[in-house]
């Protein structure tokens, strides 16, 4: 009986590994050369949200690569805010996400929105990594210490200490209007995020 269970486990594992591997696809820019650490396929999500659409967004203050400190509340009444949590510097998918946002500043501006990029990496790591992406127009914030505190506050800190690949759209009143905790192995399509921004003024 035990042997049967064991074989059944192998059988299920094999099928799962096939589908997980098959879905692990990303186009990696040559800009990073061989410096991207291959994580392999990861559990799509690994945390429980602590906020929902309609909730006030928890405030936070984090250091940016530029040296300044940025608080969510400084945008209250002035700008809509998109928070883009990505799991970690120097990993696949993440490395090919923000460079795309970097060429659509006009789309964010059209919707009176600022983008804040956040990871749990420390500032020097973020500095070196984002330098490969060219000049980014949006602030990149470090949620390194206390480790992942902001990610934890929003409920997107995974059990291994990195954050989910998650997007939050927060309106000028500080209310969360859109949440996408995406499969960590895949990049969220840009049209979904822009669609959420378009709904803000409706």
């Amino acid at each position: 009986m035990e042997k049967r269970k064991f074989v059944l486990c192998i059988f299920i594992f094999t099928i799962l590994s096939f589908f997980i591997s098959a879905s692990m696809a990303f186009a990696l820019s040559n800009v990073y050369k061989g410096n991207i650490y291959q994580t392999g396929p990861l559990k799509p999500t690994d945390s429980t949200l602590k906020v929902k659409v309609g909730d006030p967004a928890p405030d936070f203050t984090l250091p940016a690569i530029s040296g300044e400190k940025i608080s969510l509340k400084q945008y209250r009444g002035k700008k809509n805010v998109v928070l883009s949590f990505v799991p970690a510097a120097w990993t696949p998918v993440c490395s090919d996400q923000w460079p795309g946002y970097n060429i659509v500043k006009d789309l964010f501006s059209q919707h009176d929105a600022i983008l804040l990029g956040i990871t749990v990496d420390n500032i020097p790591t973020l500095f070196a990594w984002t330098n490969q992406m060219g000049q980014l127009w949006f602030p990149v914030l470090s949620d390194f210490w206390p480790h992942g505190a902001v990610a934890k506050k929003y409920g997107v800190l995974r059990s291994d200490g990195v954050s989910e690949r998650a997007l939050f759209v927060i309106d000028k009143k500080g209310i969360i209007r859109y949440i996408d905790v995406h499969d960590i192995n895949k990049r969220p399509p840009l049209e979904d995020l822009i669609g959420a921004l378009e709904k803000l003024n409706k």
Partner: peptide, 12 residues
């Protein structure tokens, strides 16, 4: 050309 809008070299 195989490109991506998310790829900095493709942009450059």
């Amino acid at each position: 050309e195989i490109f991506s809008m998310y790829c900095p070299y493709c942009q450059k």
